[in-house]
Amino acid sequence: MQNVVLKGYKDGYEITLNSDADFNAILAELTKLFAELQLEKEKSEAKSISFDISTGTRLLDAEQKQQVERIVSRYPLFSIHRFTSSVMQIQDALDMIESRTVHLNASTIRNGQVENVNGDVLFVGDLHQGGILRASGNVFTFGKNEGIIHAGYPSDAEAIIIGNIHASQQVRIADVVDIVEEDKIKDSAETVVFVNDLHVLEYTEREKVKMIRPKLFTRMGGY
């Protein structure tokens, strides 16, 4: 007994599943727990409750999650808010590191080529006309930029671009595009492109990064 523990916090309920226990035993206990909860609930006023399911050092696969969900779905007043655990798959962890690293990239991106980067990129290569540099995060560039720079691909409007984009063809952030006409943007390595509150691309200077993206600024190690 006690493979399943229900705890109440001020912001909700959490059910902890003992990670050492047999999963079938857990399911049996869960069934029992919810039956008891339902009985108690019927006495008091009906109000729906949502639970966090914490699995500790065990990772539930999709089918196991379904089994748990099936038990809860018998009771219309109860629902599962989310599953949490203190561990993760190595692959997921690597993906997370990948998407949070600033990747140094020195490639030559020629006409017709697309360079995809997962996460932020510090670009020091050559981006030719007709080439696309596409990052899911921010783009910081010292390189030759004559093509298209796309930050926050496909939908992160928080991403920004810093660098000299005077000679670029287009800048894109998330789903917003701006065509860089000749002499539209000044020839400066400190140009910052971002999406403003109106969801429109805007250009500013490096000093303003602290104001427009405070989170990014602290992540980069500023004060």
């Binding site: 030559t108 020629r110 006409n111 017709g112 080529q113 030719h128 006309q129 007709g130 080439g131």
Partner: peptide, 12 residues
């Protein structure tokens, strides 16, 4: 020149 750039990319 633009097409040459494309072709060089493919060759590389």
């Amino acid at each position: 020149v633009r097409d040459a750039d494309r072709v060089i990319g493919l060759l590389e």
